[in-house]
C-alpha cells in the first residue's frame, strides 16, 4: 500500500472538516477524491502532505508516518496545490531549477519523467510563470511537482477552471505517468473525470460516501432511471415534483432524470399525468446511471 489512511478526523472550531476518513491506495494506482467545494478534500491533502496535523487517526505515505516521519514524506512526495503556488516572477526555467535545487536534483536527472510535459512549455521557458496561460501554468506546476521523481503525487483539483482541451491533455499526461512507479491521489469536482481513475472515493461534508471502481459505483445504483423531456422544461420539472410517486427529479442537461418509488412503475401512466398538465412532445425513455446520479442518491 502506498497510502494508508485510517480514521482521520479534523475540525476547525465548530466545522467538522473530516470525519473518520479511511482508505488505502495501492502502488501505481490513480485514486480520485470526488466531491464539491467544502467537502474536505484540501484538508485531507494537507494532512497527507504533512502540512496539517489531524485531530484523530493515523496515516502513512510510502511507508512513512505523517507525524513521526514527516521529513521523509516531504522528500518522497510531489504536491500540486489547488491554488497556483509557483513563483510568478521567476521564469519557467528558473522555477524548475529552483525546485530541482531544493530537492537536491537537477532538471536532467529525471528528465525522462517530465519530458512529455516539459516539451510543451519549453518554447516559453524564458517567460515569467505569472504570464503563462492557465493550461501552461498547470503543466509547469506538474513538472515542478515531479522534478524529484516522487513516489506519491498529490494533485489537488488540478483541472479546476481549465478548459476541456487542457483538461483532456492533463489526464492523458497522468495516464502516461502511471506505470512509472508513481502513485497518484487526485481530487476533482468534475464527476466526468471520476471515470478516468482506477478507484474513486465520493466525499461530501467531510465524510466518504462510497469507495470503489467507477464501474462498480455506477452498478450500485439500484433504481431504474428515466430520461424525460417535454416542450417546457420548467413546467416538466414542476409537474414531476408534484407527481406523488416520484423518488427523485433532477435536471440533467437536455433531459430530466426521473426515478419512481414503485417497483412496478408504468411510464405510460406518468405520460398521461404529464399530458393532463398540458405538456406536449413528452419523451420517457430508460437511461443508465452516471457517477453523478450515484453521488446525488448517496448524498440525498
Amino acid at each position: 500500500m502506498s497510502i494508508i489512511v485510517s480514521n482521520i478526523s479534523k475540525s476547525y472550531k465548530k466545522v467538522k472538516a473530516l470525519q473518520n476518513i479511511s482508505f488505502n491506495v495501492k502502488s501505481d494506482e490513480i485514486f480520485g477524491l470526488i466531491g464539491p467545494d467544502g467537502a474536505g478534500k484540501t484538508t485531507l491533502f494537507r494532512i497527507l502532505t504533512t502540512l496539517l496535523i489531524a485531530n484523530k487517526g493515523a496515516a502513512s505515505i510510502a511507508g512513512f508516518d505523517v507525524i513521526t516521519d514527516y521529513k521523509s514524506i516531504r522528500k518522497n512526495v510531489g504536491y500540486m496545490p489547488g491554488k497556483f503556488s509557483l513563483y510568478q516572477d521567476l521564469t519557467v526555467q528558473e522555477n524548475l531549477q529552483f525546485f530541482a535545487t531544493i530537492f537536491g536534483t537537477t532538471l536532467e536527472e529525471n528528465y525522462d519523467l517530465i519530458k512529455d510535459i516539459y516539451i510543451q512549455i519549453e518554447p516559453f521557458k524564458n517567460r515569467r510563470a505569472g504570464k503563462l496561460s492557465g493550461g501552461m501554468k498547470q503543466k509547469l506546476a506538474l513538472c515542478c511537482a515531479l522534478i524529484h521523481k516522487p513516489k506519491v503525487l498529490f494533485l489537488d483539483e488540478p483541472t479546476t477552471g481549465v478548459d476541456p482541451v487542457s483538461r483532456k491533455e492533463f489526464w492523458e499526461m497522468l495516464k502516461r505517468l502511471q506505470g512509472k512507479n508513481i502513485t497518484i491521489l487526485v481530487s476533482t469536482p468534475y464527476m466526468d473525470e471520476a471515470a478516468l481513475c482506477d478507484r474513486i472515493a465520493l466525499i461530501q461534508d467531510g465524510q466518504i460516501l462510497e469507495i470503489a471502481t467507477p464501474e462498480a459505483i455506477v452498478k450500485k445504483y439500484s433504481k431504474a432511471i428515466y430520461n424525460l423531456s417535454a416542450n417546457n422544461m420548467f413546467e416538466l420539472i414542476n409537474s414531476l415534483k408534484e407527481y406523488k410517486h416520484n423518488h427523485s427529479v433532477y435536471p440533467f442537461g437536455e433531459f430530466v432524470h426521473y426515478t419512481d418509488c414503485r417497483p412496478d412503475f408504468n411510464p405510460t401512466e406518468l405520460k398521461v399525468f404529464l399530458e393532463s398538465k398540458n405538456l406536449t412532445n413528452i419523451i420517457i425513455e430508460r437511461t443508465t446511471a452516471t457517477i453523478e446520479d450515484t453521488f446525488m442518491e448517496l448524498s440525498k
Binding site: 464539491p36 469536482p189 435536471p251 453521488f295
Partner: peptide
Amino acid sequence: GGVDPITRRQFWE
C-alpha cells in the same frame, strides 16, 4: 463551478 451536483441542479431550476 465547484458546487455539489444537487445544489447545481437547484441553480439550474
